[in-house]
Design a binder for these strands. Structure first.
Length: 299
DNA sequence: CCCCAGGCACATT
DNA sequence: AATGTGCATGGG
């Protein structure tokens, strides 16, 4: 299957998009990327002007283009974001990076597991969970595992989840099972969260789900629930904001971030408000660009 | 041994 | 409302 990306509005850098840290389970084999969408293994390769997709079983073209958010007009989003010369440079350096439209359940569990951890660790935990509780899917020489659904997680023993390498052991295992129960019982309904406004959806997520605070909620809202104004702030994004916009921010906040203090709720909200005020409805794209920019700039 | 990583929940002031 | 602290893995 071929998907054309041969126009400025459909620009994509597939490798950058799949490896920048918004999603954790894609694997690179040479020029190809292998992952799963639902129960289907997907092998995808970027060619000149189009994407070449090989699914393990029949799949709609729109499943891929929805996942990659090819419906986002990247050219106009970037021009709307590039209000200052600092950010224009950032946007240029990460051109082709798209926000993905992930499955909300997988995204929620992934970011519950991400707390105070690092990307390589998160990858390992999630892959362990999929190997243990997911289903094996193959395409030729390639093997992958589906992400286990709420029912599989509900039936899992906490000790088995802990054995996957959770950062906070039993406590996090309970959080994951709690989320599974909420989804299974229909108390947490992602289709509803997609429709209601960002502030309400965020309150709903943080109040219902144990282990979900401001940062995790913003990640889930941005990466899987259509809230492009969500602006997740981790230490890296805080550093990027402070580097670029220190003149507009509270001096003590700048000092705290620079001296590597943990980000307080108050500082999170302050940075959050500033970001949405500055970047508007596509603040989430700005966040992802800043995140990647500050990390690659320093490494 | 130290430090830190896509933080949260709860106690204390 | 703001700040402090336990959690408790694994890599540099």
């Amino acid at each position: 299957m071929k998907i054309s990306v041969d126009s400025p509005s459909k620009t994509i850098d597939l490798a950058l998009t799949l490896s920048c840290g918004q999603v954790f389970r894609w694997l690179q084999y040479g020029h190809s990327w292998v992952g799963t969408l639902g129960n289907t293994l997907i092998k995808i390769r970027q060619r000149k002007g189009y994407l070449e997709v090989q699914p393990s079983n029949p799949i709609l073209r729109s499943t891929i283009s929805d996942y990659l958010r090819l419906d986002d007009d990247l050219e106009s989003i970037i021009s709307e974001l590039s209000g200052d010369t600092f950010f224009r440079q950032v946007a240029y350096e990460v051109r082709g990076l798209r926000i993905l439209r992930q499955d909300p359940w997988e995204c929620l569990i992934s970011y519950i597991c991400s707390r105070n951890s690092r990307i390589s660790m998160i990858r390992r935990v999630l892959n362990n969970m999929c190997r243990r509780f997911g289903e094996k899917v193959t395409l030729g020489q390639y093997t992958n595992y589906t992400f286990p659904g709420p029912e599989e997680i509900l039936n899992a023993k906490p000790s088995e989840l802990i054995g996957c390498g959770l950062r906070y052991g039993r406590r996090q295992a309970e959080e994951i099972k709690n989320a599974a129960e909420l989804v299974h019982k229909g108390i947490l309904d992602f289709n509803v969260l997609k429709k209601i406004p960002y502030p309400e959806a965020k309150i709903e997520l943080t109040s219902l789900c144990r282990g979900v605070g401001s940062k995790v909620a913003d990640c889930v809202l941005l990466f899987s629930l259509e809230k492009l104004e969500a602006f997740p702030i981790d230490v890296w994004v805080a550093r990027a904001m402070v580097n670029l916009y220190h003149d507009y921010l509270d001096k003590r906040l700048v000092k705290r971030v620079r001296s590597n203090h943990r980000l307080s709720n108050a500082d999170y909200e302050r940075l959050s408000m500033f970001a949405r005020d500055r970047f508007g409805r596509y603040a989430g794209y700005a966040q992802e660009y800043l995140y990647h920019w500050i990390r690659t700039k320093n490494c």
